[in-house]
Amino acid sequence: MLWAVFTIIAAAAQTARNAMQRELTTKLGTAGATHVRFLFGFPFAVLFLIGTMVVTKLPPPSLTTPGFWPWIVLGALSQIIATALMLSVMNRRSFVAATAYIKTEPVQVAVFGLVFLHDQISAGAAVAIIVATAGVLTMSIKPAAADAVRLGSTLLGLGAGAMFALSAIGYRGAILALAYPNFVVAATFALVVSLAMQAGTLTLFLALRDPLVLRRILRLWRPSMFAGLMGALGSAFWFLAFAITAASNVRTLATIEILFAQVVSTFIFKQNVSFREMCGIVLIIVGVSMLICATA
């Protein structure tokens, strides 16, 4: 059950990062706030990798490992798109509602994992995924008011969930492709490679399209550094969890991030929670509890 511990830590770190990125979006725009997590997360990921190699006394995996690159490219590019869509939703809806839309991801991860990685899930885990996702939908879908703004937010949120699902599958595929004897080194190595690709891609994009944003990012280095640290910490634990269990298990347990997001939404952003959202939270807790029992 070590994967569950890794997932809970990752979800908590990601909630902190998302909250910081949401605030940075007003100053840097969607592309700039997206770039922050990769640019400032990369140095911390390198430090994590150096630390794991010092402790384990193992060399890094080979960059020429067959099958590694297609998976890591899929994971890295999907995550860039997913993060941009997520921040766009957060600008339109409440912090917790945006997080809820994105957490429709577990069902998509389960399907993608079965198709691409042949990850098998038990009947109990499948029911847990459905219950947790039902909780997410209960929080997200409002009966009656489905105007154009809400419909647009829903589509963006579901798109973000799909891209996060593909990134999870890509990262798990990349780690498995390394076939490295130590899963901690393999996961951290994959993290460093993905962040290097993402930071380089978005730096080039912004340098060509909006160099002013790059200068603003550097001026806001202090809050950006915190977002990068939380992003790297969260990603490191996501990768560790992906290394030892099916991505569908990880992303289903990750729905507890909505509980963390609710705390942030209530106490920091002063956004109230409705009875319907509380019912959704209960379903998520039940689904997560069922998943833990099914995989224990």
Results as ranks from 00 to 15, higher is better:
residue 210 D to W: 03
residue 148 A to P: 07
residue 116 F to N: 03
residue 293 C to Q: 14
residue 31 A to P: 00
residue 188 T to M: 04
residue 13 A to Y: 06
residue 6 F to S: 02
residue 48 F to M: 08
residue 173 G to S: 04
residue 212 L to E: 14
residue 172 R to I: 06
residue 184 V to K: 11
residue 10 A to N: 11
residue 72 I to P: 03
residue 43 P to F: 01
residue 136 V to I: 02
residue 8 I to Q: 01
residue 131 V to C: 06
residue 198 Q to E: 14
residue 27 K to Y: 07
residue 170 G to P: 01
residue 31 A to N: 06
residue 118 H to Q: 15
residue 283 L to V: 04
residue 110 A to V: 03
residue 81 I to Q: 01
residue 182 N to T: 07
residue 181 P to K: 05
residue 194 S to G: 10
residue 269 F to S: 06
residue 45 A to M: 10
residue 275 F to V: 14
residue 138 T to K: 06
residue 32 G to R: 05
residue 28 L to D: 06
residue 63 L to C: 07
residue 285 I to H: 04
residue 38 F to R: 01
residue 147 D to F: 11
residue 111 V to N: 03
residue 191 L to S: 05
residue 65 T to L: 03
residue 150 R to L: 14
residue 119 D to E: 15
residue 196 A to R: 01
residue 4 A to C: 06
residue 117 L to A: 11
residue 152 G to M: 12
residue 94 S to L: 07
residue 235 S to V: 08
residue 223 P to A: 13
residue 224 S to T: 05
residue 233 L to F: 11
residue 24 L to R: 12
residue 122 S to Y: 05
residue 165 A to Q: 05
residue 252 T to F: 01
residue 295 T to M: 11
residue 1 M to T: 09
residue 134 A to Q: 02
residue 43 P to Q: 03
residue 271 Q to M: 11
residue 141 I to R: 01
residue 172 R to T: 12
residue 139 M to A: 09
residue 295 T to A: 07
residue 70 P to G: 10
residue 292 I to L: 15
residue 125 A to E: 09
residue 59 P to I: 00
residue 122 S to W: 06
residue 96 V to F: 08
residue 178 L to N: 10
residue 241 A to R: 00
residue 47 L to E: 00
residue 140 S to G: 13
residue 192 V to C: 08
residue 108 Q to W: 14
residue 116 F to L: 12
residue 128 A to L: 11
residue 71 W to F: 15
residue 164 F to D: 04
residue 56 T to K: 15
residue 112 F to M: 15
residue 83 T to Y: 04
residue 107 V to K: 04
residue 223 P to L: 11
residue 31 A to L: 12
residue 174 A to R: 03
residue 54 V to Q: 07
residue 265 S to Y: 01
residue 107 V to H: 00
residue 57 K to A: 14
residue 75 G to D: 10
